[in-house]
Design a binder for these strands. Structure first.
Lengths: 347, 347
DNA sequence: TATTAGCACTCAACGTTTAAGAGTGCTAAC
DNA sequence: GTTAGCACTCTTAAACGTTGAGTGCTAATA
C-alpha cells in the first residue's frame, strides 16, 4: 500500500480530528477553514473524493460529509503511535494514594482511567505464569476446623478451611506443616505428581486424609487464581456516544461488561501478542470480540515483575481520542512500574 | 383510608395485571373483555373515573387508557402479600451446585435470580454485626516478611503481609502468637483499647513494633469487612422495559449498579427495618434511593446464622411482576437457610 | 337505581408533504 | 493546479392531515 502524499494526509487527519470532536460527518467547507492549508472547499472536495476512492473515508449517504473508515483510523493511529510519546499527567498523585491491596488498586486504576478518558475501561488481575508455592501453614481454628493458608510466588494468599474428624494436637500439626512445606515448597502445580502425594500420605500415617485435603485446597487455590478476575469501570460512559447508545447495542455492551467472559478473550489476545510495544489498538471489526465491532479498543499490557502480567483495556466509540488514550495508557504503565519498584524497595 | 368495594378492587387488579403484561395504558374496553365481570365498557369507564379520583390509577393524557399509580401498586402489593405463600421452584437445584466460597455463592445467587426474573438484582455480603476475633496467626514467609492471618467469628479470613527489619526465630514467633491470641481472642474491635495495646507492647519487648503492626492489620481487616461488598447481575435487563431504557435513565441506573455506594443505602434501609416479614417492597418514590424513583424495588433480608445478615434486592420497572418476585425471593430465602444448615451439619 | 348504548370530543401516533440546509460532483474559468 | 459557481441529492425538521383508541356525558333501558 502506497503512502498518501502530505496534503492528503493532513486532510485526512483534519477529518478524523474533527469527527472525533463532533461525531458528525464533516464536510469540505469545514476542513477548508479548519486547516492551515488555505485551500478552498472545492479543492478539498477533490481530495476527499480521492481519499474516498482509496478507502480512507466514507460517505454515510450522498450529500453528507465524510467520516473516517476503519482503514482511515488505522492509518491515523499508526502514524500517531510513531510520533507521540506523551508527557506525564496528574494521574500520578491519584494513583499513589495509599492503596496496597491488589484488588483495590486495580479497581482504582479502572476508575481513574474511566474518569480521565470518558470511555469504559477494564483491567485484568495479573496472571502469574508459573505459580510456585512459597509457603503452606496449617493452624487449628477450633476442635474440628483447620485453617490452611497457602502463599504463592508474588505473595498471593489463599485460605481454606478444612473440617477434620479427629482432634489434632499441636505437635501433630507442626509435623504436618513441616511435611507439607518440605515436600511442596518451590513447586508449581504441574510439578506436584501423584507419586509425591502418595509418599506424603504414607508419611502422614493416620492423618493422610488431611494431606489429601490440603493438596486439594492447593490445587483449587491455584486454579481459582487462573479464572478471570477483571474489573471494569465507567461502563455508563458509552451513553455519551449516540452511535453506541441505542438500546440493542448498549444492552449487549453492558452485558459484556457484567459477564466479563468475553472480556477475557480480549485479555488473552492482548497477552498473546508479544511483538508489540505493549499497546495495541483494535478498530471496529479488528476486535477479537464481536460484541465490540462498533467500538474501538485500546489495550495495554502491564507487568509487575516476576512475570506477573495483566491487561488494561479502554473501550469506546470508533471516534475515540486515540491520541489521548494511548498517551494516558503509556503514562499509566510507567506509574505501575514505579509503584511496583517503590513497593519492593521501600515497604 | 377506606377500602375499595369488591368490584373496584377487581377492576383495579385487572388494570394492573394487564399493564404488567403489556406496558401500555389499558382502556375500558379491554377490561370489559378481560374480566369475568360481564360489564360493558361504559360501566367500567365510570368505575375507572372513580378509581382515578381516589388516586389508584392515572391517565397519561386525555383519551389514553389508565395506568396504575404508585398508590395503586401499593394496594395491589399489600393485598397480594397477605394472600400468597408461593410454592417451591426449580431454583433449588441450580443453587445447590457445588459452590462453597461465599463470593461465588453470592454472585451465583444474583445471577440465577436475574435470569429467573428478568430484572436487575443485587445481593450484599452478610455483615457480621459483632465481629469477634477468633484466631490470629503469624507465620514467617521469608526473612523479612511475616504473614498475619486473622480469623473472625463466622470464619471470615483476612491476610496481611508485614515487613520486619529484624529477623525472628521460630521461638519468638511462637511467643508472639501466644501473646496476641491470649489477649485478643474473643474481643470485638471496640473492645480493644489503648491500655491493652500498650500492655501487650510492653510484654513484646523489642518486638513491640510488630504487635503494633498486627493490631493495625486487625483494625484494617475488620474495617475493610465493613465496607460494602455488593454483587449485582442482570443490569442489562432494564433495557427490556422501554420506560427505563432511555439514555438518561439507563445511564444513571447502570452507573448506580457499577458504583454500588447508592445500593448500600438500600441495604442499610432494609436491614434497619425489623418490623417486617423479611420482604419489603418500595414502589417508585418510596425508594430510599432517588436514582430508582422510576423503578420498584423488592428487598429481602437473609440470615446465615450467627447474626450474619445480608440483603437481596430486585430492581425493575414499576410494572414489576410482584407476585412472582415475592414468591421467588421467599423460596430463595428458604434455600439459603437450608444451605447454611446443611453446611453446618455436613461438611 | 344501576347499567348500557351512543355520540361528540380529545389527543398521541403515524404518514405525508414541504422547506431548509448542508454537502457533493462537475464544469468552466482563472 | 486551484477555484467559483451551479445544479443536484439527501437528511432533517417542521407543518399538516388522518386515524384510532379512549374518554366523558347524556339519554334510554332493565
Amino acid at each position: 500500500m502506497q503512502s498518501l502524499d502530505d496534503r492528503k494526509m493532513k486532510i485526512l487527519q483534519a477529518i478524523i480530528r474533527n469527527y472525533l470532536e463532533t461525531g458528525e460527518p464533516v464536510g469540505s467547507r469545514t476542513i477548508s477553514k479548519y486547516t492551515d492549508l488555505n485551500l478552498s472547499s472545492a479543492t478539498i472536495r477533490n481530495e476527499m473524493a480521492d481519499l474516498e476512492e482509496l478507502g480512507y473515508i466514507l460517505q454515510p449517504h450522498t450529500s453528507a460529509g465524510r467520516i473516517p473508515s476503519d482503514k482511515g483510523y488505522r492509518l491515523y493511529v499508526d502514524r500517531m503511535m510513531e510520533e507521540k510519546e506523551r508527557e506525564v499527567e496528574e494521574l500520578k498523585e491519584l494513583l499513589l494514594e495509599k492503596e496496597d491491596k491488589m484488588e483495590h488498586l486495580l479497581k482504582q486504576v479502572a476508575k481513574v482511567l474511566a474518569q480521565n478518558t470518558n470511555y469504559a475501561t477494564m483491567i485484568s488481575a495479573p496472571q502469574t505464569q508459573r505459580n510456585k508455592l512459597k509457603f503452606i501453614q496449617l493452624s487449628r481454628v477450633d476442635a474440628h476446623q483447620i485453617l490452611a493458608v497457602i502463599v504463592t510466588e508474588g505473595n498471593i494468599i489463599k485460605n481454606s478451611i478444612l473440617r477434620v474428624e479427629e482432634e489434632l494436637d499441636d505437635e501433630t500439626l507442626l509435623k504436618l506443616n513441616i511435611l507439607l512445606n518440605t515436600h511442596l515448597n518451590g513447586l508449581t502445580i504441574s510439578e506436584i505428581n501423584l507419586g509425591m502425594i502418595t509418599a506424603m500420605k504414607m508419611q502422614a500415617g493416620i492423618h493422610s486424609s488431611i494431606v489429601g485435603n490440603v493438596i486439594d485446597a492447593v490445587a483449587e487455590s491455584i486454579k481459582a487464581e487462573e479464572d478471570l478476575e477483571i474489573y471494569t469501570s465507567g461502563t455508563n460512559n458509552i451513553f455519551k456516544y449516540p452511535e453506541l447508545a441505542d438500546n440493542q447495542k448498549a444492552s449487549e455492551l453492558i452485558n459484556m461488561f457484567e459477564e466479563k467472559q468475553l472480556l477475557n478473550s480480549l485479555v488473552e489476545e492482548t497477552l498473546a501478542d508479544e511483538s508489540n510495544t505493549g499497546i495495541q489498538v483494535y478498530i471496529g471489526d479488528e476486535t477479537p470480540v464481536q460484541t465490540m465491532k462498533d467500538c474501538s479498543v485500546v489495550t495495554a499490557t502491564y507487568e509487575l515483575g516476576e512475570g506477573m502480567k495483566g491487561t488494561i483495556g479502554i473501550i469506546g466509540p470508533k471516534r475515540m481520542d486515540y491520541d489521548k488514550v494511548v498517551g494516558t495508557l503509556k503514562t499509566l504503565m510507567h506509574q505501575l512500574d514505579d509503584l511496583y519498584n517503590k513497593r519492593e524497595r521501600d515497604p
